[in-house]
């Protein structure tokens, strides 16, 4: 079995590590520090940790103020509360002012599971992507989360990083380098391209295995930076493979699929099929059951690739 590791767990570990090197890092949470893992930082640097209680808007506003005072704030809670509840303060006080705030949210997508639709964020990528000045990143495993954090802490400006409740298979080793705005081709191929982010990168790789049994070799791209999206890599993939399937644990409206479709429709027309949550809310259930229920399994991705291949011809 592939090794699995918690991406939010990695956030806690890396943040505590970075806290030593960057004395200006301060961390805020809204009564979910055990779940987001900021508690690890809080234990190590109690003076640089602010639990704001259940008040996400206040947390975001305070983070903006801390950034204005020269600090590097990391603000964390569940994705839906971070980006949804506090959206307008993020827009006005962070993005508009281009302040150096890192919003790192856990519990993105439907694999939140049993808590149900109220807690499953399927809109956060769209909500953050639409904001000028905002960088949006969805790491595909714990290693990438570590690299992303090392990168964004040194990058000036607002960043949104999404992680999940479940553990992800480990895809990368320490040799991997992450660059903001660069997608990573995990598997070469010319029949079609699968572009994925987050946990769905693993699902895409599994779909690649299924397709290989049919003699079909898709190119598989981990598009961890959704904004700014790697347009050059997408155009190249469109030209060389002639069809694209996007895969995300998010609404098909406004997220990775939309970002890819925007580039492809303007730069290089090829058939695009978006796999994601189909304009509906989540429901309670076990993460694996929900992936099936919402059509996010390797088999679903395989079918989408076959559909795109049909359209190509």
């Amino acid at each position: 079995m592939t090794e699995k590791k918690s991406v939010r767990g990695q956030y806690g570990e890396t943040l505590a590590l970075l806290g030593e090197k960057y004395k200006d890092i301060v961390v805020l949470d809204a009564d979910l520090s055990g779940s987001t893992k900021t508690k690890v930082f809080a234990k190590k640097f109690p003076d640089r940790f602010f639990n704001m209680g259940v008040s996400e808007q206040d947390m975001i506003g305070t983070a903006a103020g801390l950034a204005a005072a020269g600090k590097i704030p990391f603000a964390s809670t569940f994705a839906i509360f971070a980006t949804g509840r506090a959206w307008e303060p993020i827009r006005q006080s962070i993005a508009y002012s281009k302040l150096n705030v890192k919003i790192v949210a856990s519990h993105g997508g439907i694999t939140v599971g049993e808590d149900g639709g109220s807690h499953q964020s399927i809109e956060d990528i769209a909500l953050m992507r639409v904001l000028p000045n905002m960088t949006v990143i969805v790491p595909a495993d714990a290693t990438e989360m570590h690299k992303v954090l090392e990168t964004v802490v040194a990058h000036k400006g607002p960043v949104y990083v999404r992680s999940s409740r479940i553990e992800f298979p480990v895809l990368y080793d320490d040799a991997y380098t992450f660059t903001i705005g660069k997608g990573d081709v995990l598997r070469e191929g010319t029949d079609a391209t699968i572009v994925a982010c987050g946990f769905m990168v693993s699902q895409a790789l599994a779909a690649g295995d299924l397709l290989a049994q049919r003699g079909i070799r898709p190119r598989i791209i981990n598009m961890s930076t959704i904004k700014p999206v790697d347009a050059a890599l997408l155009v190249e993939a469109a030209r060389e493979t002639g069809g694209i399937v996007t895969v995300e644990e998010h609404s098909i409206i406004g997220g990775l699929g939309s970002a890819v479709a925007e580039v492809v429709s303007e730069e290089c027309h090829v058939p695009v099929k978006r796999i994601g949550v189909q304009d509906r809310f989540g429901i309670s259930g076990k993460p694996n059951e929900l992936l099936e229920c919402f059509g996010l399994t390797p088999g679903d991705i395989e079918r989408a690739v076959l559909e795109v291949l049909d359209k190509k011809e």
């Binding site: 808590d115 149900g116 109220s118 807690h119 429901i283 309670s284 259930g285 059951e289």
Partner: peptide, 13 residues
Amino acid sequence: LRKVNCMLQGHPD
């Protein structure tokens, strides 16, 4: 309670 495609969602619906 909290099971897939069932009536009792994790939070009231």
